[in-house]
């Protein structure tokens, strides 16, 4: 026995479009979540990757442990922990902030693995040449190793982008009014529209993912350097 859904008419499919602005508003929250979590994930991911590859033993272990923790715990659980955890200690953060932090921390662990692989793919001669010119270790990383590693990471990073874009809908679970919650509202207001609303949301994600990857592809092309990607 499934749900007792009424038969859908053409009218239903047409009327759901009137909710497009509401859904787009919800989607804009997803995009804001995406921007926030990718930002958090990128900054922390680069730091963790650098520690994993170049850090002293203690910090390397810490970085490896970090990656292990945030790749092991289910995202939905991370969200709930980040939502209820701080509250337990009297820290009130908004559901949005909690979602950005939880998803961002998780993403940073995956991004760190992407950057680590790229850093390790750079031949040691690059570091030697930089050090021989008088670059400090940090300067060598900043001006020689990271620019190469980030370019090598673009393809893997595009994949992470496509994954976490969809993960933003999980913020629904802790009360962020994003596109899934908006679709749910439509369904509860006008029950027969439940399925059309969800289908419309699915279409919106198709479009956003398409344009996102298209944009990333362009960035990749613009940053392409002869011979650099051939080494992979």
């Amino acid at each position: 026995m499934g749900l007792p859904l009424p038969p859908l008419t053409l009218e239903h499919w047409l009327s759901v479009w009137s909710y497009l602005p509401t859904l787009l508003q919800g989607l804009s929250v997803n995009l804001a979540l995406l921007g926030g979590l990718l930002g958090v994930g990128f900054v922390l991911g680069v730091i963790v990757a650098l520690l994993e590859v170049y850090g002293p033993r203690g910090l390397r272990l810490f970085a490896a442990g970090y990656a292990w923790v945030f790749r092991s715990i289910p995202e939905i659980l991370l969200l709930l922990l980040m939502w209820f955890g701080p509250a337990q200690f009297g820290l009130s953060i908004s559901p949005f902030t909690a979602a950005v932090l939880a998803l961002g921390l998780r993403s940073s662990a995956y991004q760190a693995e992407i950057f680590r692989g790229a850093l390790q793919a750079i031949p040691t001669g690059q570091t030697l040449a930089a050090r021989a010119l008088g670059f400090s270790r940090l300067q060598a990383i900043r001006y020689v190793l990271l620019p190469q590693a980030l370019r090598l990471s673009l393809a893997g990073w595009g994949n992470e982008f496509a994954v976490v874009l969809k993960d933003t809908t999980l913020a629904y679970a802790i009360g962020v009014v994003e596109v899934m919650r908006q679709a749910r509202y439509i369904g509860s207001r006008d029950f027969p529209l439940t399925l059309p609303a969800y289908i419309l949301v699915a279409m919106l994600f198709l479009v956003v993912t398409y344009f996102g990857l298209f944009l990333l592809g362009n960035v990749e092309k613009r940053l392409r350097i002869p011979g650099l990607e051939a080494r992979r």
Partner: peptide, 20 residues
């Protein structure tokens, strides 16, 4: 040592030009 290395040129067998 960084200041010293800046005063000593080094040319490698396999060039090691910065590829990017």
């Amino acid at each position: 040592i960084n200041r010293i290395r800046a005063q000593i040129g080094f040319v490698f067998q396999d060039f090691n030009l910065f590829t990017h």
